[in-house]
Every structure is written in C-alpha cells, then in structure tokens.
C-alpha cells in the first residue's frame, strides 16, 4: 500500500491566492484613495482602479504563464535559461535590491503610521527597530512558514475590512458619488499610473514558484489573488468617497484610517475602532514585508549560492 509523505513543502491554490492578495495589499491602500481623488472628480477614480487593475492583471497572467513553464524553478534559473547566466545575475540582483528598498520603505512607513495612530511618546526608531527585529526572526526560518502565515492573517484582514465597510454603511452618502463620468480621460489615465504601482508585489511568485506543485493552476491562482485586491480597492475607494466626499478625501493623507475612525461599534465596546484596525493592519503589513524580505534573500542566495 502506498502512502503520502507526512509533510510537504508544496503550496496549493489557496496559498497562492492568499499570498498574492496579502502581498499586493500593503501600505498602498492607506494612501491610494487620496492619490486618486486628487486627480479625479467625484467617484470617477474607480475607473483608474479598474484600469490599473487590468494592466496589473495582464502582468499577473504573464508572470503566471512564465512561471508555470518553468515548474519548480526560481527567477534566477528562468532568467539564466532564457538569457544568459550573467544577465540572470544582474536581473536577480536588481530585483533583490528593489525588494530590499521596498522593505526599508515599508518599515519606515509602518513606524510613522504606528507612531501617528498608536503612540504619543515612543520614538519612531524604537518602533522601527522592534518591527525589523521581528522581521528578521521571520525571515530566519523557512519561507514556507511565511507563505502559510498568510492563511491565518489574510482572513482576519479581510474580515476587518468588511467590518469597516459594513459598519460605515449608515454614513454612506450617495450624493458624494454623483455625478459620474465627469473626469477627463487623460486624468483617469494619469492616475491609473499610480494605481498600477499599488498592485506591485506579484513578482514574488517568480521566486516562490519553487513551492508550486500544480503548475497548471498557477496563472489562474495569481489572477484570482489579484482580483481580491482590485475588489477591495474598489470598495474602499467608493466608501471613502461616499462617506467623506471627494474634497475631504483629496486632502486627507490616510483616508482609510479616517474611515476606520468613523466606525461606531454597536454596543460601544470600542470607543475608537481605528486602534483595532491598525493592530490588524500591522499583520498584513508584516506578512507583506516578511515575504518581500524573504524573496530578497532568496534572490541573493540564488546569485551567491
């Protein structure tokens, strides 16, 4: 009688979807509505979100197809097969460099926002240091643990998003959303440039491809993983505009945090919901950062084995 091995290093569809979604939703969503609202009128920014999402979906599909043609191989191996070994070195190093910059940018962002919303006196440096130490602990172990971390964190984050949206249903003002189609198409296109960048993060699948066993499912899973952030961005943007109005949003740095502030928990258990939101939000930021850091290390490792 045959038997299956007890533990496997493989990731399935669910892991890929959650990983991509969690990676894409990061710091960007906090500022995104503000950036879009600056260039668009009323609720027209949704078109930028969808347009940017389309472009990102095209890239996602390309990444998925590319990765599924090289099953079980990482970016470095793919690049050395397609180009040359030296070119692969350069490209992988660039990606690693980019991801390290991404991580440092996010660590800084986390410390700023945490300081802003959670602390009065604690210096940013301490917050950042603690964050970095925990990050180092995270990347010191096997990557598969970080991929599986998404399975716990992502549902929590989605739940909290839904809560924010649902609990704000009462303060939604439809008049803020109207009229539609007032923005010039050039502005839409210009602001979708910003939204495209908020969909960054898919590229980690080029490296985590080594854990993908069912390669046929990869493109579809990445696309699904990207659809979730597009929906979340869309809903969040509409709600932010619908609750605060376009004027306020274009002048607020973190509209989503303000949206969380607006929440009134029934029963009055929490006076200020945004504390809760931030704490949960830290989880998704953390797993985004941990994966980016981990991939940066994986990239370095593949160049300097």
């Amino acid at each position: 009688m045959t038997h299956k091995p007890l533990s496997s290093q493989a990731i399935g569809r669910k892991e890929i979807v959650y990983t991509v979604s969690n990676m894409v939703i990061g710091l960007g969503i906090l500022t995104l509505p503000n950036t879009i609202a600056k260039n668009t009128q009323f609720s027209d920014g949704w078109m930028s979100i969808i347009l940017g999402g389309m472009i990102a979906l095209a890239f996602a599909w390309a990444i998925g197809v590319l990765a599924s043609r090289f099953p079980g191989q990482n970016y470095h191996a793919m690049a050395s097969m397609i180009l040359s070994r030296k070119a692969a070195h350069v490209l992988t190093l660039l990606i690693s460099f980019y991801l390290l910059l991404f991580v440092s940018y996010q660590v800084r962002g986390v410390s700023t926002i945490t300081r802003l919303y959670l602390f009065d006196n604690t210096p940013e440096e301490i917050i950042g240091l603690i964050y970095l130490l925990v990050l180092i602990y995270a990347v010191a172990g096997p990557s598969i643990a970080l991929l599986r971390l998404n399975l716990i964190f992502f549902p929590i984050v989605v739940t909290i998003m839904l809560l924010i949206v649902l609990l704000n249903l009462g303060s939604l003002n439809v008049h803020y959303l109207l009229p539609v189609f007032k923005t010039d198409w050039r502005n839409i296109a210009a602001s979708s440039k910003d939204t495209v960048f908020s969909y960054l993060g898919l590229e980690i699948m080029l490296f985590y491809n080594i854990y993908v066993v069912k390669k046929g499912k990869l493109p579809g899973s990445i696309l699904r993983g990207l659809m979730i952030p597009i929906c979340i961005y869309f809903v969040v943007f509409m709600f932010v505009i619908g609750v605060f109005g376009p004027m306020v949003v274009s002048n607020t740095l973190y509209p989503l945090a303000e949206l969380a502030k607006e929440v009134e928990v029934p029963g009055g258990v929490f006076e200020r919901f945004e504390f809760f939101f931030f704490v949960i939000w830290l989880m998704t930021l953390f797993s985004t950062n941990a994966m980016a850091f981990d991939v940066a290390l994986l990239a370095l490792e593949s160049v300097f084995p």
């Binding site: 091995p5 007890l6 533990s7 603690i130 964050y131 172990g141 096997p142 643990a145 704490v279």
Partner: peptide
C-alpha cells in the same frame, strides 16, 4: 513596553513559531 503594538508583534512571533513547528513531521 509597547502597548497594542507589542501585543500584535508578540502575536505575530507566536504565529511564525507555530508555522515552523512540526510534530513528527506533521505541521
């Protein structure tokens, strides 16, 4: 030391630890 931030960081660390832990090969 760090309020809610400390709690959530500890929670994350516990989660990472649990992710790595195996019992006789079973995650």
């Amino acid at each position: 030391f760090l309020g809610l931030y400390g709690i959530v960081m500890t929670f994350i660390m516990i989660c990472i630890h649990l992710m790595r832990l195996h019992s006789f090969g079973v995650p």
